[in-house]
Amino acid sequence: MIWEALDYPFFQRALAAGLLASIACGIVGTYVVVKRMASISGGLSHAAFGGVGLGYFLGFDPMWGAVGFTLGTGLALGWAARRLASGLDTLIAMVWSVGMALGILLTALTPGYAPDLMSYLFGSILFVPPDTLTLTAGLDALILLTIVLLYKELKAIAFDENFAESVGLPVEPLFLILIGLTSLAIVTLIRVVGIILVIALLTIPAAAARHWAGSLARMMALACGFGALCTTAGLFLAYGLSARFGLNVPTGPLIILLAVGLYAVSAAFRRRAGRCCAPAPL
């Protein structure tokens, strides 16, 4: 039976990593979708690779490198985004590729072989070390706490920045907090699906949730659920394919394809239900 997978500690850890990452990606992904920050998030997730390289090069845990580097880049990009009249997409493209370039360069300069470089790029949820789980749980707690404390303010700037500013809310600090949360959520997803696929798990569950949710809070809850569903189903599917058919399939891409499938089904049902809104664009 497929449930025997649950007996393996590595599988339990993978399941936990997927569920923990779903919390971060559901909450933050909701903001990314409604505030249309997908391209900034894509840039940031690739910039994370620079942090991974930095970790290898300087000899500390690459995950911590990713946390620091993504957060720093995110805040700088957020600061610039509010001052640039145009050309933000070009800047994002630069951050995107510079992050990758730095990561590749720094890993190449690191003496010895960097064994799990590929696991950062494409994810390796089956080999999540326990301290990454602790880190992910910590980041989840930080994200949850911030959202609970600043829910109505963050909702206000996500909905209408101009109005929020007119009543005196500190729009820029709030926006930077949002970018900071996005950076942290990206880090939690790196191990699950890998840097290259992070943006998908950050946006797809939330975009599907928007078909059904009438409030931001419900959209977050639903997006967390969809994310959890996809990561869990992806894990069991990968395990099943390997146990039954001897097929060794990477889990990250499976999770993403399941998520897109879920989105498609949700959009189709939405259209049939046709209650309020047209299916949200990705």
Binding site: K155, R210, G214, A278
Partner: peptide, 16 residues
């Protein structure tokens, strides 16, 4: 298409 009700929008007028 933001998921928000008319009431929530008006309540934003009370933010400070």
């Amino acid at each position: 298409k933001f998921p928000i009700t008319a009431r929530e929008v008006v309540q934003m007028g009370r933010l400070r």
